[in-house]
Design a protein around this nucleic acid. Structure first.
Length: 600
RNA sequence: GCCGAUGUAGCUCAAUGGUAGAGCAAUCGCCUUGUAAGUGAUAGGUUAUGGGUUCGAUUCCCAUCAUCGGCUCCA
């Protein structure tokens, strides 16, 4: 599962829920240590929906172990032991934890000051505190509940075991992490488990199969997506909309190849900084060619194919460019994380004077596209200049100021990530929240001060001299594959009518209604709708069931009554019955749904 | 890449050291149906791949590949 990124309540760390989860982690650690007295403990913090604790144990944990541990936790909670805080010196702490190497490492860090339990730098030298409950003592900042009995174990559940590196560094040993979820009330737990179930039902990998949208074949290769006809319909409609909007908004389309010579990638810097994501070169006539991980160098070459005047700018090159990036074997995930994907890419080139307006434009355009797909809950993240950066500082300042001004003008909620930009330019990322409240990054609007230099891009100003243009890279959907995955999960497979691969299914009740149904189908097809006729000699109920499972927005039942009046009886996938109406009236109704991109 | 789990029919899942079974789907019939599953029959599998142990492996062991849950990284 992709980690959910929901902002936690601002005061989460002071909340009772936080203390509860932290305390549950301690109780669990005690239960684990009783089972494995030689076990070593690492860290066990509260997280978004619960808590975890990392252990170094003599053998892998099994699901049965978790049950046992949970049973033991029940006893510990029942005993209602108090959590006792004590502040100790580093020496004392070392004595207490002398057989706990991970804790000793943490103590060293605390004593030296400057790092917290995750190894991140902190400003003040922290006080070393320990918490005791029953037989368990932990090096811990707290806070905790008063007593173990405050934990309602009916609201706590151990979820799964996973591997995790000590301090998140892959050079460190792999520990076993037990994830648990914990809530204030059993109802909250139930709600959480329901959300998990719901997420599972909406999982794009499952729906991709059920709705016959896409697949990934072993024979083709991991992380390489096959778009089936039904998925391709959705993609095609989305792309056509995307194209139309680009045309009306002053973009030019370009098409570029999938491979380019080594020198190109050397100039762009990819072979120096991005090589580990690139595939091995292909040799052609003693020249090395690389599969493209990005489209930018090609667009730059198009720009450079002629002398550019300030009168030509801004220029906007757009391309749905398919790129290939090496992903490590364990990280692929349905459509969300793949090795070959298509970016809805574009590069803007403009003069410094045009730049602020260009940013306004691209931000508005991005929001327009995202909202069209039903994503209304959008948040922006502005990332500014990092320590190590290329480009003149004044340019950075101008760019950051323009980005911030655009965000303010667009009245978009945003956060600033100081120093979080790439070395080659500041950026705005747009993240949306889906129907389950999960946050996903889609769009990115990114300055590039590096490539115009590297490729020596210029334009001629009024004064007849050559100047460096601004270059802005942007992708709206990001990866079309991933965007599709998010769309599937957002809508739970029930796409809005304008995107539905099949918009209408006609269901004749008996064979004698099939001819009439064919006429209806033709008429709707003429109107540009995606219609299917279910002429199997099955019962109507079975056909409705099948259409429901495919989440077709409209089912038209035709029987004797309808045939007589040249009508169709309309059922929505929600189960709502709209009654019988003339085919032409239905047409108007659906076309309105399509035009207005109505959801539901 | 790392840790753990998994891999049996198109899908969801059973079973066994003596060459596998159900439901759904599919195909062919019968039924001609009024808002979420009518009914009968048939067909369908070198049990992921490659080795090994064994008289015999789908089952036990090893390797590889893939998937799932995480870690790391990221669109």
């Amino acid at each position: 599962m992709i980690r959910r990124r929901i902002e936690m309540a601002e005061n989460y760390e002071e909340s009772k829920l936080y203390r509860l989860r932290h305390s549950a982690a301690h109780v669990m650690a005690q239960a684990v240590l009783e089972k494995f007295p030689e076990g070593k403990v690492a860290i066990g913090p509260p997280v978004e929906d619960g808590f975890y604790y990392d252990f170094d144990l003599p053998r892998p944990l099994t699901p049965e172990d978790l049950e046992e541990i949970e049973a033991r936790m029940r006893e510990i909670v029942k005993a209602n032991q108090p959590f006792i805080r004590e502040e100790v010196s580093a020496e004392k702490a070392r004595e207490i934890f002398d057989d706990q190497p991970y804790k000793l490492e943490l103590i060293d860090g605390l004593e030296a000051g400057g790092v917290d339990e995750h190894g991140n730098p902190v400003e003040e030298k922290p006080v070393i505190s320990i918490y005791k409950s029953d037989t368990f003592v932990d090096l811990c900042r707290g806070p905790h509940l008063e007593r173990t009995g405050e934990i309602n174990l009916k609201a706590v559940k151990l979820m799964n075991v996973a591997g995790a590196y000590w301090r998140g560094d892959e050079h460190n040993p792999m520990l076993q992490r037990i994830y648990g979820t914990a809530w204030l009330s059993p109802k909250d737990l139930k709600d959480y488990l329901w959300r998990l179930e719901e997420a599972k039902k909406r999982d794009h990998r499952r729906l991709g199969k059920e709705l016959d949208l896409f697949s990934v074949s072993d024979e083709v290769g991991a992380g390489l997506v096959l778009w089936h006809p039904m998925g391709s319909r959705v993609r095609h409609i989305a792309e056509r909309f995307w194209e139309d909007e680009h045309i009306t908004h002053g973009y030019e389309f370009v098409y570029t190849p999938h491979i380019g010579k080594a020198d190109l990638w050397k100039t762009s810097g990819h072979l120096d900084f991005y090589a580990e994501n690139m595939y091995a070169p292909i040799e052609i006539d003693n020249q090395q060619y690389y599969l493209k991980p990005m489209n930018c160098p090609f667009h730059i070459e198009i720009y450079k194919s002629d002398i550019r005047s300030y009168r030509d700018l801004p220029m906007r090159y757009a391309e749905k460019g398919t790129v290939y990036r090496y992903e490590r074997s364990g990280v692929m995930h349905g459509l969300m994380r793949v090795r070959g994907f298509t970016q809805d890419d574009a590069h803007h080139f403009c003069t410094p004077k045009q730049m602020p307006e260009e940013i306004d434009f691209v931000l508005d355009f991005s929001l327009h596209i995202l909202r069209s797909f039903g994503f209304d809950d959008i948040k922006a993240y502005l990332s500014t200049r990092p320590e190590k950066a290329v480009g003149e500082p004044e340019r950075w300042q101008d760019a950051e100021a323009a980005l911030q001004a655009s965000l303010k003008r667009a009245e978009l909620p945003y956060e600033v990530d100081e120093g979080g930009g790439a070395f080659y330019g500041p950026k705005i990322d747009l993240k949306i929240k889906d129907a389950l409240g999960r946050e996903w990054q889609l769009s990115t609007i990114q300055f590039d001060f590096n490539n115009p230099e590297r490729f020596d891009m210029t334009y001629i100003e009024e004064d007849g001299h050559a100047y460096r243009p601004y270059m802005i890279h942007r992708a709206l959907m990001g990866s079309i594959e991933r965007f599709f995955g998010i769309l599937i999960e957002h809508y739970g497979g029930a796409f809005p009518v304008w995107l539905s691969p099949v918009q209408v299914v006609i269901i004749p009740i008996a064979d004698r209604h099939v001819d009439f149904a064919r006429g209806v189908k033709e008429s709707l097809k003429q109107a540009g709708l995606r219609v299917e006729l279910d002429d199997r000699s099955d019962r109507m109920n079975a056909k409705i069931r099948d259409a429901e499972k495919l989440k077709v927005p409209y089912m038209l039942v035709v029987g004797d009554r309808e045939m007589e009046n040249n009508q169709v009886d309309i059922r929505r996938r929600s189960g709502e019955r709209l009654g019988a109406m003339l085919v032409d009236d239905f047409k108007v109704l659906v076309l309105k749904d399509v035009a207005e991109k109505v959801e539901g």
